[in-house]
Design a protein around this nucleic acid. Structure first.
Length: 610
DNA sequence: AAAAAAT
């Protein structure tokens, strides 16, 4: 199979779709060009204001198919005109937009929508990089990735975006994003989601999973019926999709991406997270929301204030799902998913994405799913070469001067006279502040991000780092997962994490977009419990493992990080594991139940798709 | 044990 997708191919696709005849996007009724089934239906004013009843909405979810049929829900509530964007987004009647088709078609009402072009701002800033990023992707490296799917009637994967009927508006946004070809997780996950199936997906951050769950949600909302939602006067809003993530910055990032994917589709994406004034978020919500991206705490607040109802949720996506279900988050997530008014599994469609899925987390997560498909996308093979991992034996008291040496060397090797971006992970918030201060005192422009800083400070730190104004960012694990910070050349694990997963997530902040990256870890006696898993991981990624680390690993008894499955392709459906017993002679984890782990270590390391 | 997440 030819794996290289050229710009010529892209242009050809584009041309075919512009003609709009006979292309696949036209054949199944492009989403934007509302089909006959969407004929406007007049809804009398007295029905428009009727709030949804207590019973959950009839399912589009479990039975969601690619059909354009829109089976009636019976009640007049459910026969609202699909083209009435104002009603659909919960604030009809104002501004003379009633009855407009443009919200969905991206057609005539473009001007009226006054939707800020989410591509506009980036274009200049990213132009210099974007071509390289788009063409520098080594797709060949992604062809032989092991993929495992388990579950009933797994829909087959697709090879091109053209095969997926997402509609012409979304297709246009895909081109605007310069996505040429779906990534492996997208190839498999999108058909599964479009078929209405629940999904537990193991795929490293940076493998394109945001798009993998956003595209089906956007498409589903566009083609689904338009439930009658209360109009503007109502203070409570009824999103159709909920995307939860573990940090505020990650929620912001998902929101930005989702806005690009949904541009001019009429699908409204709103983000809500703590640390920022709630009133502004409330105003945004009142202007209409289809997809709500949120962190758990702020969402609970909104639910308790009765400003958001989950009654109409058709799609639930948890990003970094293993983090969302760990001890710190699980109660909040359970509250949101099980104890508020969200439709139950089987009625809503649920998608969980994470790089790693320990068996016990899978067990917890299965409460939220119905007849789900498990998908694991394995390591990215040769692309792991993009990150060089180093481990250095550094005593606690020598860490600062050692860091200084690294930074000095880097400065002299600086690219284009600018210091390369360096992300330094530490264990504690206090440690982050003190290291930041020390670096600044020693002439290294640094900033810090952690949970004790104000949201403003956190966002400012991230901006300042991304722009290169302060090319050193000292961070706690708040920045370890999911964050897309382009052009990070070096990740330093000043303090190693206790969990090998966190290490994988941290180093995944570099080596992105087809660029090479360096990850340096400071190791000492305090990290003995990590020795074995670290050595295994590095070996798995074809990295040079220092002899002293191998000795450490041999001495250690594995700790919590030892994985029975071995590294290469451990993403495994726990439903199959009752009979799955490696009985491995190399498995020391007596009291350890942290098995059943995810996808090859290297998978997220090289990523061109964040 | 720490970090994150509401005020």
């Amino acid at each position: 199979m030819t794996t290289r997708t050229s710009w010529a191919d892209l242009a050809a696709n584009s041309a075919a779709e512009n003609v709009g005849v006979g292309s696949s996007s036209a054949s199944n009724g492009a989403v934007g060009s509302t089909s006959g089934a969407g004929r406007p239906v007049y809804v009398p004013p007295h029905l428009r204001n009727r709030p949804p009843s207590a019973e959950p909405p009839a399912p589009t979810s479990s039975g969601l198919t690619s059909s354009n049929d829109r089976p009636g829900y019976g009640g007049s509530r459910w026969t609202a005109p699909r083209n009435d964007y104002n009603n659909r987004s919960g604030h009809g009647g104002s501004g003379g937009r009633l009855g407009g088709w443009g919200g969905r078609s991206g057609g005539w009402s473009r001007g009226k929508d006054r939707e800020v072009n989410p591509f506009g701002n980036d274009d200049d800033a990213e132009e210099a990089f974007s071509e390289q990023e788009s063409t520098g992707i080594n797709f060949d490296a992604y062809e032989d990735i092991p993929v495992e799917t388990t579950g009933d009637n797994v829909p087959p994967p697709v090879n091109t975006f053209a095969e997926i009927d997402l509609g012409e508006v979304v297709n246009l946004n895909i081109r605007r994003c310069k996505y040429v070809k779906p990534t492996p997780v997208q190839r498999h996950a999108i058909p599964i989601s479009l078929a209405g199936r629940d999904l537990m997906a193991c795929a490293q951050t940076g493998s394109g999973k945001t798009a993998a769950f956003c595209f089906p949600i956007i498409s589903g909302i566009m083609r689904g019926q338009v439930p009658q939602r209360p109009l503007r006067g109502a203070r409570i809003v009824y999103p159709l999709a909920l995307i939860l993530s573990p940090t505020r910055e990650l929620s912001m990032q998902i929101h930005e991406e989702a806005r690009k994917f949904s541009y001019q589709t009429g699908v409204k994406v709103v983000v809500a997270y703590g640390g920022a004034p709630i009133n502004q978020q409330l105003r945004e919500l009142e202007r209409g929301v289809d997809i709500l991206v949120a962190t758990p705490g702020r969402l609970v607040d909104l639910l308790e204030r009765a400003r958001v109802s989950l009654q109409m949720i058709r799609y639930l996506a948890l990003d970094e799902a293993d983090r969302m279900l760990d001890m710190g988050f699980e109660p909040q997530i359970r509250k949101i998913v099980e104890q508020m008014d969200m439709p139950p599994p089987g009625v809503r469609q649920t998608m969980l994405f994470s790089a790693t899925f320990p068996r016990e987390i899978q067990r917890l997560a299965s409460d939220f799913l119905a007849n789900y498909i498990f998908l694991a996308v394995g390591r990215v093979g040769s692309s792991t070469d993009l990150i060089v991992q180093r481990v250095e034996l550094v005593h606690e008291s020598d860490k600062r001067s050692h860091l200084m040496d690294l930074l000095h060397a880097q400065r002299t090797n600086g690219v284009q006279g600018k210091q390369a971006l360096t992300l330094v992970f530490v264990e504690t918030k206090k440690g982050a502040d003190s290291l930041e201060h020390w670096l600044c005192m020693n002439g290294f422009p640094a900033t810090a991000i952690h949970g004790d800083r104000t949201q403003q400070e956190r966002e400012q730190a991230l901006r300042s780092f991304k722009s290169g104004a302060t090319p050193i960012l000292v961070a706690t694990d708040v920045a370890a997962r999911g964050l897309d910070i382009p052009h990070v050349a070096h990740v330093v694990n000043f303090d190693l994490p206790n969990d090998i997963d966190d290490y994988v997530h941290r180093i995944g902040r570099t080596g992105r977009a087809g660029k090479t990256g360096l990850a340096t870890a400071f190791f000492n006696d305090n990290n003995a419990s990590l020795a074995r898993s670290l050595a295994d991981l590095m070996q798995e990624a074809n990295q040079e493992v220092p002899a002293w680390l191998t000795r450490y690993a041999a001495r250690s008894f594995g700790g919590r990080n030892r994985r029975p499955g071995g590294g290469r392709f451990g993403g495994r459906d726990f439903r199959r594991e009752s009979s799955f017993n490696r009985g491995g002679s190399d498995y020391y984890g007596g009291g350890n139940s942290a098995g059943g782990y995810g996808v090859g270590y290297g998978a997220g390391i090289a990523s061109a798709w964040d």
